[in-house]
């Protein structure tokens, strides 16, 4: 059983990275891997509530973030500094997560067995 950390560093919808990262997270979790997600930089925009990507023909994978608890993915972190930069530190986000400092993220990266960046 591996501790797999998936980092979301890109904004949703502009590229397929966000959807691919979430697919990998759910798939790995269903294979009993210990999966954790970290949202950093522009990746925090995945967390904005009330997105309507279908309006621009993009697949709505944002709703699928709701499935994470069903897959036992309970470690969901977001970089406090990035949230502040994008004015999301006080905002209501798409899911329950823990706001952490960059230093805590550094520690988390050290503890993980594998880290994949999307």
């Amino acid at each position: 059983m591996k501790k797999l950390t998936i980092i979301f560093r890109r904004a949703p919808h502009g590229t397929p990275h966000g959807r691919e990262a979430l697919d990998l997270a759910l798939l790995s979790a269903s294979f009993e891997q210990e999966v954790s997600l970290i949202f950093v930089d522009e990746g925090v925009l995945n967390l904005v509530k009330m997105q309507h990507p279908e309006l621009v023909g993009a697949k709505d994978f944002i709703a699928t973030f709701g499935a994470l608890p069903l897959y036992d993915v309970d470690t969901v972190l977001a970089c406090k500094t990035s949230l502040l930069e994008y004015g999301l530190d006080k905002a209501e986000l798409t899911m329950k997560l823990t706001q952490v400092s960059p230093a805590e993220i550094t520690q988390h990266l050290a503890d993980a067995d594998e880290v994949l960046v999307f």
């Binding site: 560093r9 960059p102 550094t106």
Partner: peptide, 23 residues
């Protein structure tokens, strides 16, 4: 950890993001 950056900062934010979380 070995942090591998393959894109120029002018092209992508990878290096800047990496440096924020590197030990």
């Amino acid at each position: 950890i070995l942090h591998h950056i393959q894109t120029s900062p002018a092209q992508d934010n990878a290096l800047a993001t990496c440096l924020r979380y590197i030990d």
